[in-house]
Design a protein around this nucleic acid. Structure first.
Length: 923
DNA sequence: AAGAAGACGTA
DNA sequence: CGTACGTCTTCTTG
C-alpha cells in the first residue's frame, strides 16, 4: 500500500505562470523563472504535506490530441502559449530530473489521460492516489482512494477534492462531474454547453435522471427555455462528454511500480538551482529532503575528548608531522567581551584527524588555543580550516594590541572554503553545511539549524533548557553548554577533515592546486594582516564633511519640494515616477521592471529636454545624500584607535578579484571633486612605534588592456605599450589613420571607450549608447578598430570558442571560471555567458597579478623587517602606510613587485604617489 | 523579518 | 543590448 502522487505538469506550471508576476522572477541573465519557481515551490510544499511514496509528473505533448482531431475547436480559444511560458517548461523538466522525479507523456494524449491511466493502475495495485492538477476534468477520478488537489487562488493553496468536496461544490458525486461539465460546458476548453444551464440546473437534472444518459433520454420532457436549449444542443453535450472522458488504458512506458520515490541528485540540484538562482527554494528543498530520508544523509558522529595542555602535547607529538587536521575554533559566545555582536572568547580549538576508512565515529580532540599555537610553532601537523581568516583573527586576538602576524608560520595548510572557491568560483556561498551535503553527501547537523538545537544535545543526552531533567546546578549547566560548543565545533572539524581530502582531489583535477597553495593560501595571511592594520581616518574631517553634505541634502530637498509643491520622498523611485511622469508629464525614460527609470543618466537627459529645475535639485539631493551616507557609514566603523578595518572577501568574485565589506573600502568616491574630499579623510596614522610617514598609493596603469595585449599577442597593441606613447592616442592614430599628434580629444575618447568596452563584450549598440552616436557610426568604429587590431578580434573569438569547448575560461595563472551557459539554447543566457567568458580571463588575470604582487610586497617588507605595511587593495591599486625613513625602499619594492608580478609581452607600468592622505597620494 | 528592486559608488 | 563587486533605501511579501 503506497501513496502515489500524480502531478499535471503543464496545468500547474500555467497556474504558477499567471499567479506570480513574471517581472519579479528572472535570473541575472534575464531568464524568466516565475513558472519554474511557482511550480517547484508548489511541488515542495505538496511533497512535504502529503509525503507520497510514489511520484510522477505528467506533461502534455504538443497541442495535437485525439480531442483536437475529433473537434478542431478544442481549446482553440486559448491564446497562443506565451513564449515566456514555453521557455520555462524545459527548465521545469530539468528541475524534475535533478529531483529524480519521473516524467510521463503520451503522444496524442493529454497529461490528464496519462494521469487517469496511472490512477487506474495504481488503484489496481492497491495504492491511494493524489492527483495534483488545475484541470477540473480530473474530478471524475475522485473516489474514496483518489483525491484531487486543486489549486485555488494562485499557487499557495490547494483545495482537497474528495468525494464529499466534489459533491458539496457541484451538487453531484464525482462520477457525475463529467456529465455536469458536458451540460454546463467548459470555457477554458472552448466547449460550449447548453445556454442557460449552469451547475445548479445541471445537477438537478442529473440527480433526477440518474446521469447524462437519463437526461438525454428525458430531454423531450424537460420543460422551459432550458429544456428547449438542451434539445437544440444535444449534439454539443454528447460531444462534450466524449471529449471530457479521460482515457484510462494508455500504453505507458512506466507503471506505478516504477514511480517509487528515489534519492535526489544533489549535485544536479545545485547546478540547476544555481542556474535558476533559487536560493531559498533550494534550502527549502533540502530541508524537505533531509526530513524525508534521514538515513540517506547521515550526519557526523563525533566523540570529543577535551585535552588539557599536557595531554594535548602528548597527542600532538604522536601524530605524523605530515598529518592534516580539520580544525575549528570553539568559541564561547556567552562570554561578553563587550566589543560587539558575534564576538566571543576562543576557549579551545577542535581538531579532527582524517578518518580512517570505514570509521563511522570521528575522534575529535579539543585543545587550549595557547597550547595549539605553541605546538604549531614547533612544526608538525598542519591545520585545515574552513574560512580560516576570521578564525585566525580570533586566535590572534584583537588588534591593535595583537595581530595575526604573530601566528605561527605554516599553521594553516589549507582552507576548504578557498579550495571550494577555486573549484567553482561562481557559487555565492561556501557554507560548510552546503559543501558537506554536496561533496560528502552528509548533513552537517548543527544545533542552530534545527529547532531548539536538538541534535547535538540529543547526542549528549543533555537538557540545556533547564527543564525538569536539566538539574539546577549552574556549574553543571555551564559545563554542559561548554560540551555542546565543543561537539558542534568538533562536528565541523570532522567535516572539514573529510572535505579537505575530497576537495584536494577535485582541485587537482581542475589544475588549481598550485593556485591554492602558492597564491590564495599565502594571500589569506597577508589579507589578515591588512585587516589587522586598518587605515587611519581624520575623524574631525569626516564629521565636518558629514555636516557639509547634510546642509547640501536639506537645501536640495527644500528646493526640490518647492518646485513640485509637496514634500515627496525623494528617495522613492515610485513617488518620483508619479511626480515626473504623471504630475509633470515628462517624457518617459527607459523602462524598468516596475516602471520608468529615474537614474542619474535619465534625469540628466530629462533636464536637457525639459530644463525643469526640479531635476537639478533632485540630482543634487541624490549626490549629497549618497556622500553623506558614505561618510556616516565610515564614521560608524571607526575604531577606538581612529582606524577603519574592512574585511577582504576572498571567495566572492567569480573572476578572482577580492571584495571588501563592512565597510567597503573599494568604492570610496574618486571621480568627483566633492567625493574626493572623502578620500582626503583617509590619512597616514601611527603604529605601535609611533607616527608613520605617509600613505603610498601604487597602481597599475591600463592593466587590463596590457593583459589583453599580452593574451592576444596583437602586434599593434603590443607596440602601443612598448612605444611609450599614450595608449589611446596611439590606438586613435591607427584607427583614424592620422598622426598621433592629430588625434583629437573626441577621437581619443571614442577609442578609449571602445578599448575598455572590448574586455566587457561591448556591442555596437552599447558603444553607440555610451558615446551617444548612431549605431552605424559605432559599428564602423568597431570594424575599423578590429581591422587595425585583428589579433584582439581573433583572441576574443578564440576565448569564447575555447570556453565553449572546455566549459571554462582560464587566467594567466590557470584560475578557471566555469560557464555552462555558453551552450545554452537561451540566447540571452548564452550571450551573457559569452561576455563573462570574454571578461573573466582579463579581469581574472589582473587579479592574479595584483595578488602575486601583494605576496611579493609582503615578503619584501617582512624580509626587510620594515614597519611599513600594506593597508588596502583596490583591484589595481595598493595602498600602504610607510614609515618615515622607509619611503625610498618601499617605493622601490612596490614598483619592483608590481611591475614584476608577471612576465608579459608588454611592460607593466606602475605609478606611485605619496602623501599625507589617500587623496594626496593619488597621482 | 527578509528579500527584491532600484539606485550608485569603485575597478 | 558592457564585466566584477557592496550598500543603501524603499517597497513587497511571508
Amino acid at each position: 500500500m503506497g501513496r502515489l502522487m500524480l502531478v499535471d505538469g503543464h496545468s500547474l506550471a500555467y497556474r504558477a505562470f499567471y499567479a506570480l508576476p513574471a517581472e519579479n522572477f528572472s535570473t541575472s541573465t534575464g531568464q524568466t523563472t516565475n513558472a519554474v519557481y511557482g511550480f517547484t515551490s508548489m511541488l515542495i510544499n505538496v511533497l512535504r504535506d502529503e509525503q507520497p511514496t510514489h511520484l510522477a509528473v505528467a506533461f502534455d505533448l504538443g497541442r495535437q490530441t485525439f480531442r483536437t482531431e475529433e473537434y478542431a475547436e478544442y481549446k482553440a480559444n486559448r491564446a497562443t502559449t506565451p513564449t515566456e511560458f514555453s521557455g520555462q517548461v524545459p527548465l521545469i523538466r530539468e528541475v524534475l530530473d535533478a529531483m529524480g522525479v519521473p516524467q510521463v507523456t503520451a503522444e496524442g494524449y493529454e497529461a490528464d489521460d496519462v494521469i487517469c491511466t496511472l490512477t487506474r493502475r495504481a488503484r489496481e495495485a492497491g495504492h491511494d492516489v493524489l492527483v495534483v492538477t488545475g484541470d477540473r476534468d480530473s474530478f471524475q477520478l475522485v473516489d474514496d482512494h483518489v483525491t484531487v488537489l486543486y489549486p485555488v487562488r494562485g499557487v499557495s493553496e490547494l483545495s482537497r477534492m474528495d468525494p464529499a468536496a466534489v459533491e458539496a461544490r457541484y451538487g453531484v458525486p464525482p462520477g457525475l462531474y463529467p456529465d455536469l461539465a458536458a451540460l454546463v460546458g467548459e470555457d477554458s476548453d472552448n466547449l460550449p454547453g447548453v445556454p442557460g444551464v449552469g451547475p445548479k440546473t445541471a445537477a438537478k437534472w442529473l440527480l433526477a435522471h440518474g446521469g447524462l444518459a437519463g437526461v438525454i433520454g428525458a430531454a423531450g420532457d424537460i420543460k422551459g427555455k432550458a429544456g428547449e436549449n438542451l434539445r437544440t444542443h444535444l449534439h454539443d453535450v454528447e460531444r462534450n462528454r466524449r471529449l471530457n472522458r479521460l482515457v484510462g488504458d494508455l500504453d505507458l512506458p512506466l507503471g506505478p511500480a516504477d514511480l517509487e520515490r528515489r534519492p535526489w541528485d544533489r549535485d544536479a540540484i545545485h547546478t540547476v538551482f544555481d542556474g535558476l538562482e533559487f536560493r531559498v527554494l533550494r534550502e527549502r528543498l533540502f530541508a524537505t529532503f533531509d526530513n524525508d530520508e534521514p538515513e540517506a544523509t547521515g550526519g557526523f558522529a563525533v566523540e570529543v575528548r577535551r585535552l588539557d595542555d599536557a595531554a594535548a602535547r602528548a597527542w600532538w607529538d604522536a601524530l605524523p608531522t605530515s598529518a592534516r587536521l580539520g580544525a575549528e575554533v570553539v568559541l564561547d559566545d556567552t562570554a561578553d567581551t563587550g566589543t560587539g555582536p558575534g564576538d566571543g572568547v576562543v576557549e579551545a580549538v577542535a581538531l579532527a584527524a582524517s578518518p580512517a576508512a570505514g570509521e563511522s565515529v570521528s575522534e575529535v580532540v579539543t585543545v587550549p588555543p595557547g597550547t595549539l599555537l605553541d605546538l604549531a610553532r614547533g612544526g608538525g601537523p598542519g591545520l585545515v580550516l574552513h574560512d580560516a581568516k576570521p578564525q585566525l583573527h580570533l586566535l590572534a586576538g584583537r588588534p591593535p594590541s595583537s595581530s595575526t602576524a604573530s601566528l605561527p608560520e605554516g599553521l594553516v595548510v589549507s582552507d576548504t572554503a578557498l579550495a571550494a572557491y577555486l573549484c567553482r568560483p561562481d557559487q555565492r556561498s561556501y557554507d560548510l553545511a552546503d559543501l558537506s551535503v554536496r561533496h560528502l553527501g552528509r548533513t552537517l547537523v548543527e544545533g542552530e539549524e534545527v529547532e531548539g538545537g536538538a541534535p547535538v544535545e540529543d547526542q549528549l543526552g543533555l537538557d540545556l533548557d533547564g527543564g525538569s531533567g536539566g538539574g539546577d546546578d549552574p556549574s553543571a549547566l555551564l559545563e554542559a553548554a561548554r560540551q555542546v560548543r565543543a561537539v558542534r565545533a568538533g562536528i565541523r572539524a570532522a567535516a572539514v577533515a573529510e572535505l579537505d581530502a575530497v576537495l584536494r582531489a577535485e582541485l587537482e583535477e581542475r589544475e588549481g592546486s598550485a593556485l591554492l597553495r602558492d597564491l590564495e593560501l599565502p594571500l589569506l595571511r597577508v589579507l589578515a594582516r591588512m585587516e589587522d592594520a586598518g587605515i587611519a581616518v581624520d575623524v574631525e574631517q569626516l564629521q565636518q564633511l558629514r555636516e557639509h553634505y547634510d546642509v547640501r541634502v536639506s537645501e536640495a530637498a527644500r528646493l526640490a519640494w518647492a518646485e513640485v509643491g509637496e514634500e515627496i520622498n525623494l528617495g522613492s523611485p515610485k513617488q518620483l515616477q508619479r511626480v515626473l511622469f504623471e504630475q509633470l508629464a515628462m517624457p518617459k525614460t527607459k523602462r524598468t521592471k516596475t516602471g520608468y527609470t529615474t537614474d542619474a543618466e535619465a534625469l540628466q537627459d530629462l533636464y536637457e529636454r525639459t530644463e525643469h529645475p526640479f531635476l537639478l535639485h533632485l540630482l543634487e539631493h541624490r549626490d549629497a545624500i549618497r556622500l553623506r551616507q558614505t561618510v556616516e557609514g565610515l564614521l560608524a566603523t571607526v575604531g577606538p584607535d581612529r582606524r577603519i578595518r574592512t574585511t577582504f572577501q576572498q571567495t566572492i568574485a567569480a573572476t578572482g578579484r577580492l571584495s571588501s565589506t563592512d565597510p567597503n573600502l573599494q568604492n570610496i568616491p574618486i571621480r568627483t571633486e566633492e567625493g574626493r574630499r572623502i578620500r582626503a579623510a583617509f590619512v597616514v596614522g601611527r603604529d605601535s612605534a609611533g607616527d608613520m610617514g605617509c600613505l603610498m598609493s601604487a597602481d597599475y596603469s591600463q592593466v587590463e588592456m596590457r593583459i589583453m595585449a599580452h593574451l592576444s599577442g596583437d602586434a599593434g597593441l603590443i607596440e602601443a605599450f612598448r612605444s611609450g606613447e599614450d595608449l589611446h592616442r596611439f590606438v586613435g592614430s591607427r584607427v583614424f589613420e592620422v598622426e598621433p599628434a592629430a588625434v583629437t580629444p573626441e577621437m581619443r575618447a571614442k577609442v578609449k571607450a571602445m578599448s575598455y568596452g572590448l574586455a566587457y563584450g561591448l556591442s555596437a549598440f552599447g558603444l553607440s549608447r555610451q558615446l551617444r552616436t548612431p549605431v552605424e557610426e559605432s559599428r564602423a568604429l568597431m570594424d575599423e578598430y578590429f581591422e587595425r587590431f585583428g589579433g584582439v578580434r581573433d583572441y576574443l573569438r578564440g576565448v569564447v570558442d575555447q570556453a565553449r569547448r572546455d566549459g571554462w575560461t582560464a587566467t594567466i595563472l590557470g584560475r578557471r571560471r566555469y560557464l555552462p551557459d555558453l551552450t545554452s539554447d537561451n540566447r540571452q543566457r548564452r550571450e551573457a555567458a559569452e561576455r563573462m567568458a570574454l571578461n573573466a580571463p582579463i579581469q581574472g588575470s589582473a587579479a592574479d597579478l595584483v595578488k602575486v604582487a601583494m605576496l611579493g610586497v609582503q615578503a619584501g617588507l617582512d624580509a626587510a623587517g620594515a614597519r611599513s605595511r600594506m593597508l588596502l587593495q583596490v583591484h589595481d591599486e595598493l595602498v600602504l602606510e610607510v614609515a618615515p625613513d622607509e619611503l625610498d625602499d618601499v617605493r622601490e619594492l612596490v614598483v619592483r613587485e608590481m611591475a614584476g608580478a608577471a612576465d608579459l609581452a608588454v611592460p607593466l607600468d606602475v605609478s606611485v604617489g605619496v602623501g599625507r592622505s589617500w587623496f594626496d597620494a593619488a597621482h
